[in-house]
């Protein structure tokens, strides 16, 4: 019944794991101010650094992918925080004026 629109992050995670890849899921758990993506938004990442979806509209994706590779390696879930008061956030580029908390977990 109808075609699902956006490529689905959860389906892609399952495909990656079936193909023998490691994979992690990043999810926006809370936001303050003008964050571009709503709570619940997903970014699916695999161990080759391929990713699908979005947690920020682009400004912190590369930092999240780097953390996700760590999570895949040690299996420990992490909660990441990015915000304008955080110098690192400026470095990774969250200059859009918001703050965001992201949970990253390995698919296992």
């Amino acid at each position: 019944m109808g075609l699902a629109a956006t490529p689905d992050e959860l389906i892609r995670l399952d495909e990656w794991v079936r193909a023998g890849r490691q994979a992690a899921l990043a999810t926006v758990v809370s936001t303050w101010g003008s964050s571009p993506r709503p709570v619940g938004s997903h970014l699916a990442i695999n161990d080759q650094g391929d990713f699908l979806g979005s947690v920020s509209g682009g400004c912190i994706e590369s930092a999240v992918v780097a953390e996700a590779l760590e999570v895949m390696a040690d299996g420990e879930p992490r909660t990441l925080e990015f915000g304008v008061s955080d110098e690192e956030a400026w470095e990774v580029g969250l200059s859009c004026g918001g703050a965001i908390r992201i949970f990253v977990e390995r698919v296992e």
Partner: peptide
Amino acid sequence: MKLALLREVQRARA
């Protein structure tokens, strides 16, 4: 996330 849980979510959505 455990793969079994992820697949159960996909089943529910389907």
